[in-house]
Write a protein that binds this DNA or RNA. Structure first.
Lengths: 125, 125, 125, 125
DNA sequence: GTGGTCTAGACCACA
DNA sequence: GTGGTCTAGACCACA
């Protein structure tokens, strides 16, 4: 489900959080669907359970998932939360584009980088 | 010259590095121009000289400035410096694209944002 | 693992960097193998952790190792790492050639020395 | 006579010392020939007189030049000194070749680098 | 536990 | 004066 990249420099916890956000945004999961348990996912990914725990807490406080004590964690159907995440990502990306253009990168160079990375992401699947 | 933002979470050293890259990219400095001395800039910005030192060494290893022991640091004048600035900007932008895709933004959405902002930049001129 | 020479005049940090590059080049370490932690190596070598930290960051920016926050540093396994080692060696050798020519050694003298030593290395095998 | 390269990272004083050694080794100057005065060379090179002074002292203590108070500095006809410098340069270069081969560089790569840098030095004249 | 950043301050080489 | 290296030690984020 989630591919960790240890060499990317991105904290593992963030990668897990982003992974679930992406699955939801791309409709790879349905609202109400249950997430793996903290312990199970920790084993699958070979990661400390504390790291998964932290990721779930971040997801819950963002409204992306909700947790029922004793039952598990589930993707929420809170569209507002999903939208907020996407809007935030877009805002960050807009800022990055603005910075890049200010530093002298041109439209075609930016688009080239976008397609290059998106193609690469495709082939990784 | 350089404005530090302590609340941003961006390391001071990185802010200084980015500040000089920006100055170079925007042609606010001339090639060969001397940078403030490590100690002087440290005093001006109210940070430890070691932090400035580290920033200058990063800039030097990127080829954006060069240092003469006992004399000071200077903005590079060869084409390599411009290339270094562009490479740095591209690297940052690649990271931004990766983050955006991780959060579920699709290629066409990213390209849309790029063209939107670039067009706007055009019409501002 | 790494022998420091305080009298050589070579900065400690550089000696550490070169030591790991050497270990990688000589295949004394496996790809993916973990390096000692910053603190541990600092204790072993009797130097300040900051010095080790700097060395590790130089190695990382060269692509020879990669670092996972909270986990540790590891030797890179992709081809990029080997390339980085070669590049580093070439850079050092270029500097040596420059110094030699500055001191009046001529091209044919340098080549003679190169072949002499390489032949000797061959016959040692 | 002497070309300074501020970007090379080599201390100016060393570059001057090496420059005179090279001139002598390549027979561009004769034994007994007078060197420019400290003040004159300082002006020509746009360098602090203290730096020239230091370079001359190093050259004198190596036996490459000798100084007559009130008259000036002259290239000595001490062949032993010249030889010693060359031998030292060769020894350093041998060590560099050995290190390079140990790090995985092959004979043809080393020769390529030697010719590349020597050709470049030629065209700089 | 791991690495990352920063301050404070000493001491060195170089110009 | 300039930059370069290093120690000592605090404090942070991450696993």
């Amino acid at each position: 489900m989630i591919q960790l990249n240890y060499k990317s420099g991105v904290p593992i916890c963030d990668q897990i959080v982003n992974g679930f956000i992406r699955m939801k945004a791309l409709r790879l999961v349905e609202s109400g669907e249950q997430l793996p348990s903290v312990r199970q996912l920790a084993m699958e990914l070979g990661v400390n359970p504390n790291t998964i725990q932290k990721a779930y807490q971040i997801l819950e406080s963002s409204g992306i998932i909700y947790t029922v004590k004793g039952k598990g964690s589930f993707f929420s159907d809170d569209e507002a939360a999903d939208t907020a995440v996407i809007m935030s990502a877009k805002k960050d990306f807009r800022a990055a584009v603005k910075t890049a253009t200010e530093l002298g990168l041109r439209e075609n160079e930016l688009i080239e980088i976008v397609t290059e990375i998106c193609k690469k992401g495709e082939s990784d699947k």
